[in-house]
Amino acid sequence: MADPMKIRANLVGDSTEVKVLMSHEMDTGLVKDKAGKIIPAWWIQTVKVTHNDKVVLTAQWGTAVSKNPFMSFKFKGGAKGDKVTITWIDNHNDSRTDTAVIA
């Protein structure tokens, strides 16, 4: 199981700004280790963000997203105390879901 995401959700005017830092190797499958063996591709493929139960962002990623991915965006309609939940799924079908409260 991967390490938890770091999520910040802050109310800015009438929008909620979400910043998230995920913990993932994001191996491209193109890099060799010290022994000269290819490190297999291992990366987050889909990301979904919900506010309460409404989807506010979905993403699909290739291997070109950096290690320990960062993402930031804004949506309208959040209120302090509301929940923002983020789920990612990688190509090992491993997944991680974390929730933050809008501040």
Partner: peptide, 28 residues
């Protein structure tokens, strides 16, 4: 990214109510 091994790096879908603005970090 034109000269990456795979061209498409990321794709983001914005439902109504989400600002069409995104920040992230990629490999080149």
């Amino acid at each position: 990214v034109d000269k990456n091994p795979f061209t498409l790096a990321a794709l983001f879908d914005f439902p109504a109510g989400t600002e069409p603005t995104i920040s992230t970090r990629i490999k080149m």
